[in-house]
Amino acid sequence: MPLRHVLLALFVVAIWGFNFVVIKLSVEALPPILAAALRFFCAALPAVFFVRPPKAPWWLVAGFGLAFGFALYSFLNLSIAWGMSAGLSSLVLQSQAFFTMALAFVILGERPRRMQVIGALIAFAGIAIIATERMAATALLPLGMTLMAAVSWGLANVLTKKAGRVNAVAFTVWGALAAPIPLLGLSLWVEGPQTVLSALAGFGWREMAIIAFLAYPATILAGAIWSWLLGQHPTSAVAPFTLLVPITGLLSGYLVFGETITLIEVGGGLLVIAGLIVTVIRGRASEPRVRFD
Rank of each mutant, 00 (worst) to 15 (best):
V190C: 08
M208A: 12
M208V: 05
T235S: 15
H233N: 12
L186E: 04
S252V: 00
G204M: 07
G231P: 05
M208N: 02
A209S: 00
L221Q: 01
A237E: 14
T219D: 06
P217D: 06
E207G: 11
I210Y: 03
W189P: 00
A215G: 10
P193K: 14
S236N: 13
Q194F: 08
L221K: 04
F241D: 02
A222Q: 03
I225M: 14
P246C: 13
W226R: 09
I247R: 02
L243G: 12
T248S: 15
A212I: 04
S252L: 11
I211N: 01
L221F: 15
S227L: 01
Q232Y: 04
L188T: 09
Y254G: 12
A222H: 00
A237T: 13
S252G: 14
P240R: 06
L250G: 06
S236I: 00
A237C: 00
P246T: 11
G204N: 14
V245N: 08
T195K: 15
L244M: 13
H233W: 14
A239V: 11
S227P: 03
E207P: 04
H233L: 15
E207V: 01
P217G: 00
G202K: 02
A209Y: 01
A201H: 11
I220T: 10
L251H: 03
L250R: 06
E191D: 11
Q232W: 01
Q194D: 15
S252E: 06
A201F: 01
A224K: 08
G231M: 10
G202Y: 02
L230D: 07
A239S: 15
G185M: 14
P240V: 00
E207S: 04
T195R: 14
G249V: 05
L250A: 13
A212W: 09
L243N: 15
A222P: 03
L221A: 10
E207D: 13
P234W: 07
W228E: 11
T195I: 07
I247W: 01
V238L: 07
L230K: 08
A209W: 01
A224D: 07
Q194I: 09
A222I: 06
V190E: 10
G185T: 12
A239Q: 11
G204L: 05
Y216A: 05
P246A: 13
G253C: 10
F213H: 03
I225A: 07
H233D: 09
A215W: 03
A199L: 07
A218V: 04
I220V: 15
F213Q: 00
L250N: 10
W189N: 02
L255Q: 10
I210H: 00
E207H: 05
G253S: 08
